[in-house]
Design a protein around this nucleic acid. Structure first.
Lengths: 337, 337
DNA sequence: CTGAAAGCGCTAACAA
DNA sequence: TTGTTAGCGCTTTCAG
């Protein structure tokens, strides 16, 4: 735990020079720099981030706020954020809001205000106005991932387009009876993501001259379990079952595949199924899906933030559109004759 | 962003008193305390953690190091750690080592040394001697979860006992042909966890007078996919298939259930399957399993640390044994007649 | 129980 | 390019 003073002494320079040489931002003569670096290495010197933060006002630490941890999408985004941050020399302080309301409240009223972070990344969070205001009093850059927060720059995939693409894939195979498993209305967590995907589905149908029968919609909770039950309802309907199902998430789509199997239906011969995500398990189940790339989304959020934190930057950089891609596997085919 | 000075002025006391009143550790007269609290509330005052840390040497921040993020066990432990930490007013700084070796190196040589944390929790990490030494030079409390690190206090489940319990469940149902899907040897990540579970399985067999045939073992990688392929091998063996399978993780067990189905076997009529974990999906698949409770493990690690960080505490508190429990669902039954 | 004052370890003007 | 110096905002002796 050597301090900057000892390094300065060993290198034969002042502490200010050590600071400059090690931070790399300011000009220092190459000779001095290497002397300092050698001394630092020899003494195992690592700056105290607290002292540095206090003096400079920069913490090199980013807060990441998530609504869940143990779900594929969130942990994948987090992975991307983490590794990008590490590359930039930043720490990641994690706040998970899946606890009770008090917990959430204290995160916004207390934890985030401790001046411990330079910026915050909010993943798929529906923030209340009070919360957004709180964050704004922080006067720190804030970027959201996964759905528009009013007044906050957000990386967001185009849910309508994604859903439309998935549905069009089914239509192009010849399906006309296409059911949809989407989020139940409570899922406002996801900012109308559910609604937008449903709208995309409906618009694809309409564009093909097909009717969007309300009976072809089954709500679920984005889990395999939920998708399974929703699919059972849809596929077991006595008045004739759909030949294809578009599920708003891969987990629900996998549930649907399992439900079809349990009903004795063969996928894709009897029923085609598409999801959204490209979840870890999707390849295993041969699920056709519209991939989004959560790791990449996390990394992108970090790049935007880094850009914004550079003292040189003026305007906040714009958020580019997020990529997505139809991946056709073995869960979709032409409808039964 | 009011400072302590303003609070002091508003409350009509000195900054020292504000500090004392708000930290709560030292004695302050009730009247003064409430005056200070009112002033702090009015000004929306929140201490600057950097200044506080620098002055006191305590950061109220814990580092958590994980080898993966997007896996059920790790994200569940992390969830437990996070919520317990929040309750105690601590921040959580996350380091995920799933990147390359350089990343890992820089975490240990750089990030963890910045004096940003009071302690570190290492989840299922096989640390090299150099890494442990590094951490010890930190002179910070360190607790591991999930497997013994030499010289580090670790919360660890008894893998041998767990495996034995699962196997005994099968034996007590009357099974004598019991196969095992375990970790492949490379999985040293998990500290001989794989080996220990295999030993537990074998010892249960021996105790029942059954032979542990090496042909009844299939290695896999702890995923559904891996479990599926391993189970296919086991259940498709032409020289007679086992009537039961013990898998070292629920994900592998679920893979085995799916493999059995694909082979036209009915679980549990034709083959019984047990796992370990009580994964999120296990209930859905009706999987009998030995539950471990990762959230609880995370919380426990935090409690131990908090105890240790209390200035009053002398000896490091002992780590209690971790609970586990056999949960019988519908994937196990007596063997076919 | 409370106040005054000396730092915690570093960075950033300002000079030289 | 480098050194000097004054803090960053709080905590903690040490007095009173």
């Amino acid at each position: 735990m050597a301090g900057i003073e000892e390094v300065a002494r060993l290198a034969g320079v002042s502490t200010a020079t050590v600071s400059r040489a090690l931070s790399g931002n300011v000009h220092v003569s190459p000779a001095t720099r290497s002397k300092v670096e050698a001394a630092a290495l020899e003494l195992d010197y690592v700056v105290s981030s607290n002292a540095s933060s206090l003096a400079s006002g920069r913490t090199r630490n980013i807060a990441v706020v998530v609504p869940f941890l143990a779900r594929w999408f969130f942990s994948s985004v987090l992975e991307g954020v983490q590794s990008a941050l590490l590359r930039h020399g930043y720490d990641l302080t994690l706040y998970n809001l899946s606890g009770d309301a008090d917990e959430r409240h204290s995160v916004f009223e207390h934890f985030l205000l401790r001046q411990r972070v330079d910026a915050v990344i909010a993943i798929s969070l529906e923030l209340t106005e009070a919360e957004v205001k709180r964050l704004h009093t922080l006067a720190k850059p804030l970027v959201g991932i996964g759905g528009p927060i009013s007044g906050v720059r957000t990386l967001s995939i185009d849910d309508t387009l994604i859903a439309r693409l998935a549905t069009e894939h089914l239509i192009s195979l010849g399906h006309t009876e296409i059911a949809h498993i989407g989020g139940s209305p409570e899922f406002d967590l996801d900012f109308h993501m559910s609604t937008n995907r449903r709208l995309g589905y409906e618009s694809a149908l309409e564009a093909a001259g097909l009717a969007a029968d309300p009976a072809s919609f089954a709500p679920a909770d984005f889990t395999i379990h939920g998708g399974y039950h929703a699919a059972k309802q849809l596929l077991g309907a006595p008045q004739g079952r759909p030949t294809a199902v578009f599920a708003s998430s891969d987990e629900m789509a996998i549930g649907a595949i399992l439900a079809a199997r349990d009903l004795g239906l063969v996928v894709p011969r009897d029923v085609s199924i598409v999801g959204v995500d490209d979840h870890d398990l999707s390849d295993f189940f041969g699920l056709t899906t519209v991939a989004q790339f959560p790791r990449g989304q996390g990394e992108m959020a970090v790049e935007i933030l880094m850009e914004e934190l550079k003292p040189t930057t003026e305007a906040a950089p714009a958020a580019p559109a997020l990529p997505y891609e139809l991946i056709v596997r073995s869960s979709t085919a032409v409808p039964p004759a």
